[in-house]
């Protein structure tokens, strides 16, 4: 079995689910003939035809709103926003309608849409192509926010997102799209939503992250292992709703926690996780929780994007701080 990238895993999951369920429609800007600007939807038009793969007009609120209408009638749209920085015109539709349709109709209508979008910095892209504003979506009641960090998890979580009966925001870290390859059996096996994945077991400190930052986080964990420091690494994966049990169990074991995310510090999901740990695991903590996050600045143009992104050095320093 050939090894595939995260990007190819997204493609493979889309193709699998389109084959399995004719209600699945892929739509968005440039997703058809061009196969998506990153090629996430490459080949789907050829395989499933223009009836199932729609190149839409260039309007994100429309992409969100039409998907809601389609989903209300039992279709399962998988809609792509070309970059997270361009998803905001769709926010009104997502917050005011997608997230609420089930609740405001007491379940008479529902909204099984997956909104996919590439997100995050680190690929030398132009302005507005590097945002990580997952907290906006996570703050909205009625949404699930799912972020894969490996080809296997991209495949399994995207299948789960499409099969989920409620709206899912599926954020694909652009920095990881082609970074690593993995064997991913194309057998339609979904991974569980609303669950963290323990990527590495350890006993001294818990490192909590999601998306692209897990790459640096794992590097730090491996390096510190050589220095005799045992890091447990947790991929949150579904950042809303949070799997608190896995996080609490880990921190109760290690007594120390560093939370790493690329999004700006203030009101980021790290704050929510730190608050949960402070509320429910305070007496297990042997040191204050530390967050390593993006700064509270606009993501800089790419000359400075490496300075913006939490580096391995910053993560390592934070780990050593909580171990003091």
């Amino acid at each position: 079995m050939p090894e595939i990238t995260l990007l190819e895993a997204v493609n493979q999951a889309l193709a699998y689910e389109m084959q399995r369920d004719e209600n699945v429609i892929v739509l968005g800007e440039d997703v058809g003939t061009n196969g998506g600007v990153f090629r996430a939807t490459q080949g789907l038009l050829q395989k499933f035809g223009a009836e199932r793969v729609w190149d839409t007009p260039l309007a994100e609120s429309m992409i969100a709103g039409m998907s809601i209408g389609m989903a209300s009638q039992g279709l399962k749209p998988v809609a792509e926003f070309q970059f997270m920085g361009f998803s905001y015109p769709g926010l009104d539709q997502i917050i005011n309608h997608a997230a609420r349709l089930r609740n405001r109709t007491r379940g008479r209508l529902s909204c099984p849409v997956v909104f996919r979008t590439p997100y995050g910095a680190g690929i030398h892209a132009p302005e507005h192509h590097s945002e990580s504003t997952e907290a906006i979506y996570a703050h909205t009641p009625g949404l699930r926010v799912v972020i894969p960090s490996s080809p296997a998890r991209a495949y399994g979580l995207l299948l789960a997102a499409i099969r989920d009966p409620d709206p899912v925001i599926f954020l694909e870290p652009t920095r990881l799209y082609r970074l690593v390859k993995q064997n991913v059996p194309d057998e339609g096996e979904a991974l569980p939503l609303d669950q963290c994945f323990v990527l590495r077991e350890g006993s001294d400190v818990t490192l909590v992250s999601w998306g692209a930052m897990l790459h640096e986080t794992m590097n730090v964990a491996r390096a510190l292992d050589q220095e005799g420091i045992s890091c447990e690494v947790i991929d949150v994966a579904t950042i809303k709703p949070l799997d608190r049990d896995t996080l609490l169990n880990s921190v109760e074991k290690t007594g120390r926690c560093v939370i790493i995310h690329e999004a700006p510090l203030t009101a980021g999901m790290g704050a929510e996780i730190a608050a949960i740990l402070a509320e429910q695991a305070l007496f297990f903590l042997q040191a204050p929780i530390v967050r390593v996050a993006g700064y509270d600045v606009t993501v800089p143009y790419f000359k400075l994007e490496k300075a913006y992104l939490p580096s391995e050095a910053r993560i390592k320093e934070a780990v050593l701080t909580v171990l003091q």
């Binding site: 039409m66 998907s67 209408g69 389609m70 209300s72 009638q73 539709q93 005011n96």
Partner: peptide, 20 residues
């Protein structure tokens, strides 16, 4: 659909329904 209070937002739901 139920009543839509955000102005004009329901026009997009209708085109989505029509797509279905």
């Amino acid at each position: 659909f139920p009543m839509a209070v955000p102005i004009g937002s329901q026009t997009l739901h209708a085109v989505g329904v029509a797509c279905a």
